[in-house]
Design a protein around this nucleic acid. Sequence first.
DNA 1: ACCCGTGTTCGCTG
DNA 2: TCAGCGAACACGGG
Length: 274
Amino acid sequence: MPELPEVEFARRCLARWTGGRRILRVEFDSRAGRIFRPAAPALVAKGLTGARVKSVGRIGKHLLVRLEKGGASLGLLSHLGMTGKWLRSGAGLDPPSHSRARLFLDDGKILHYQDPRLFGRLRMVPGARFEEVREVAALGPDPLPGIDRSRLAAALSRTRLPIKVKLLDQSLLPGVGNIHAAEACFRARIHPGRPSHELSLSEVGRLADGVLASFRSALEAEKGPGITYLEEGGANPFLVYGREGENCPRCRREEIRRIVQAGRSTFFCPRCQR
DNA sequence: ACCCGTGTTCGCTG
DNA sequence: TCAGCGAACACGGG
């Protein structure tokens, strides 16, 4: 369920697990071709074998792993798609289900890239020049630790798209996904259907605050049991997402509604959000 | 069985 | 030319 907070959590885990470690061996499953495409899985595996991890970065929902092999820099770009996850296990344990690739580290641990739906991507970036990768080049500046409000206001003034739909555009505030777009509109008390160019400067400011607050709240939840995934059985940690029919947590007088915008669900309070 | 889904890209349309 | 839309990708869960 990766939007920015989950990807940032994955980054911290990966950094802790791999810092200074060497990759001894790489395995992949029969479906890994989708994840690695257009490169052949065997080529990626060969490229990673023997490399040492230097650092793990992130921009938006993209993980940027910097490695070194034979004195040369090497990059691994990881996008988790809808269901991608990095997990770690000890040697000799059964791999988790849908483990598409496994990296065997020199401390005896195994990193698994798990991705049931195969929407994620894992690709090598020569020289770790991530900025030359088209999807990365198209991203706006990462919203953490802060958002440039003038830039945000300027970008919003140029489109009539509903604000909640525009928030999904990764050139705006990369890392915002369907959940946090709805959460940010709710926190900002802005109706998700409002044309972006109509927002006042103070509304744009509230929206930036809303995005950051929603991210921080989710990151805070990750520190606990690491559960912010709706499917994982924990309580729904969100204010409006997935809460159709429940009372609004702010006004307590209106039920949360669900609408569909650009083919995606949006949840909002019709009383609080105008 | 049917519907829904945390993301992105591509092709079509007006 | 291009913003905007819907479909497609693929699979599990309710």
